[in-house]
Write a protein that binds this DNA or RNA. Structure first.
Lengths: 198, 198, 198, 198
DNA sequence: TGTTAATCGAGACGGTACGTCGGGTCTTCTC
DNA sequence: GAGAAGACCCGACGTACCGTCTCGATTAACA
């Protein structure tokens, strides 16, 4: 019996992983990412978290994966979904929340991840699959609920405009990621949606 | 004659800068940027260009400024403006050319510059002023020629969608920067323009 | 047993220092010092020893300390004390051995250390304490065994003449560091000793 | 006529050398040598003297030659020979003056020259011929005037002890270059001289 | 009750690149 | 010509991180 449980759970032998250590690392990574993305070195995370470098390398193959997990952890603890009424309101809220989130620490993390995905070509697919696509799918759902089913190419283009313009502001900083922006963006998406739906 | 030239030029003293050296550095930088952005170290540029590091640091304060100048130089030598007929065709061509350019070496350079602008916060304003804004103004001109004068906020948003979606594809690589994309993007912009102009 | 050993050793944490690496560095330093003192750069020692610069800087704060340790190591492995009969013969042998040693690799190292102690004022005290004084004390012992106890000032002066004239020849190279020199020097010291003892 | 005069005097053509520039360089070199020997770089001398590096390299082949000439210039302007009575007093004065001189700026220059002669093996012969030997000959003259003619080997040894012990204190700094030292040294030399003369 | 295996802090180690200093040579303009 | 200015290639500096590697000391599950 125990055997089969073990087989299922693949319970490891030696000393189990210390969850406190994991948390300390992720929190430190998230903190350092906020204090200016360029300062994020594994060395510094290890020092600040009171952890050995080996421990970090044991669990995360690269800086990118570390920040990604830190971000996902942070996001789940931070973002609380709000109950939405109509599909239109749901889409509006989603865009607003996305823009609002990127204004803060999450924005710093995303910028760091973008940089990492460019520097470490091995990380780009991971970033794309585990973060970009996930956000796109959520947004795609809200979009199609609001404007109806869309041709895949057109859906892709709308998502590119949506996330693209947000990231563009995040990276360049020439214009704010404020509510006005979110509102205007929502309107633009609606215009495009109406055109495409017809 | 000479007098006025002297007055204008305020000719510098000492040995003049060697233009061949400058060109060799910029070409090497451009080449290395193509071979994978992360490999661009000043050390490597110097070695490959047969130049001392000091010479690079004398003229470019950071990696970002170096790549930026290399890109601008490359672009002026590479991109030939095509005579356009109607404003609509001009806009179409501009978007097509922008997308096409980012598919090649220029795209590699822009990715590198984006990374650099995030890692070196001192470089971000330079990048914004000397590259991003310049491209935006050109595009804004074509846009307003085509759809008529626009409210500044709306113009900004349209430019963000345009460049944002292009950069987004450049960075994430989830969808191609092909002609189809350029066409669809142009159509979307036209839709938004029509909405805004009314 | 183990307890007391533990208490004494206060064993360090982390990966222990690799003695082979240490030896390779010191040997390389000694070799480079022989091939012409000016060529001794940390960079070159690192390259020739197949070691990273950081490893050298981890254990030796400066070129001087590195060469000093290399010399001390080399000397202990090279110099074999010879059993002496009378105090007079012991003194003779000591002077002869000192002169002979400075004729070879040890002389190159001492010259390098002298240079270093002048270029790096922080190293001078170390050099003085760990090398100069040590040699002086040995010589002082032999001297007083031979000629009897001496007034401190006079002892100092005799040692200065002794080592001074040897170093002077080592540095200037106007006259050889041969046995004749050692013999004459011994005689001169004896004359002074006789005068002072009276 | 003029031709032949030119040929004879080998009067150079273009602009004659500016003696003020030469002086400014030598003074600056002497000043920098005093402020800590290690700081003497051609670069710094040029900057401090308001002179181009090329001008320095035109007249002095190496740092050593520059400092040597600066020292000789300084010494002639500084040291005033004192009329001496007996040969014994002359020797005493000479030793006293030598020790006293090395206590100040001249000592700094000599230390710098010693370092230079070790780092730049091409400079050692120059240093030996133009400085070391010159001083030795002066001292040898005073010595032989005082104690009578000496066997060359013995003379060499006495000079080595004399200059060696002074330089040794200059370099190591374990004991002062004061009058007491000069006196004791003179006495020691007298003792040796008496022994050798017999 | 050990034995075994993995975790974890600590830190040594070979590398690559950083940005700076100085060396010695050169090229240009001015006097 | 001499001289100031300064570009240029080069070698070395001392530092920061990289990713890998030993250590000793824990901490479980297994025998």
């Amino acid at each position: 019996m125990a055997e089969s449980l073990e087989a299922l759970g693949s319970r490891p032998r030696g000393r189990p992983r210390d969850p406190q250590v994991r948390d300390r690392i992720l929190e430190t990574a998230m903190r350092l990412v906020q204090e200016g993305g360029r300062k994020l070195s594994i060395e510094k995370v290890a020092a600040d978290a009171g952890v050995s470098k080996q421990t970090i390398y044991r669990w995360w193959p690269s800086r990118g994966e570390l920040v990604l997990e830190a971000l996902l952890e942070f996001a789940t603890r931070t973002i609380v979904p709000r109950p939405d009424g109509s599909p239109e309101r749901a889409l509006t809220h989603l865009i607003e929340d996305t823009v609002a989130a990127l204004r803060g620490p999450i924005g710093d993390a995303v910028r760091s991840l973008l940089v990492e995905s460019q520097l470490d070509s091995g990380f780009l697919p991971t970033f794309r699959d585990r973060f970009v696509e996930a956000r796109r799918e959520v947004m795609a759902g809200a979009l199609e609920s609001s404007v109806g089913e869309l041709d895949p190419e057109r859906l892709t283009l709308m998502l590119d405009c949506l996330f693209g313009s947000i990231w563009y502001r995040l990276l360049v900083g020439h214009a704010p990621l404020d509510e006005r922006f979110a509102t205007d963006l929502t309107a633009a998406v609606a215009t495009l949606g109406a055109e495409y739906a017809s």
